[in-house]
Design a protein around this nucleic acid. Structure first.
Length: 106
DNA sequence: AACCTGACTCGCC
DNA sequence: AGGCGAGCCAGGT
């Protein structure tokens, strides 16, 4: 079980219609400072259709600038399709759609 | 094998 | 309040 695998596991646990921050993923796998690694993990291994990386956003709710499935705009589209609301064109309404607590990965 | 970099976050100035 | 440096892991050069 590598750190990357844990990241993927945590991301898969994000409920549909909600989003999680990189920090929350990092926290779920044991170290909140891994937030950076979380992003890199999804960057190099976006396993399309398996890992819902579009549900992962920055701490302030802004979608990442380099999205693998066709641009940040595509990510926003996917989230909207799941019922996630936005405060503007690129910021998720974190007060309503951010997951309260993400299960710890052991 | 070492060094650099990258979807981030937080603390200090 | 905004800017900068540090800390984390893996892969490429």
């Amino acid at each position: 079980m590598t750190t990357f695998d844990k990241v993927y596991e945590a991301v898969k646990l994000i409920p549909k219609g909600s989003v999680a921050t990189y920090g929350q993923i990092a926290e779920a796998i044991g170290n909140k400072r891994l937030s950076r690694v979380v992003g890199y993990a999804l960057h190099v291994n976006p396993e399309p259709g398996v890992i819902p990386c579009h549900r992962v956003v920055k701490r302030d709710g802004e979608v990442s600038s380099a999205f693998a499935f066709g641009g940040a705009n595509r990510q926003v589209e996917l989230l909207r399709a799941e019922g996630v609301g936005f405060v503007d064109g690129s910021h998720v309404d974190m007060t309503k759609y951010r997951v309260r607590a993400l299960p710890m990965i052991l």
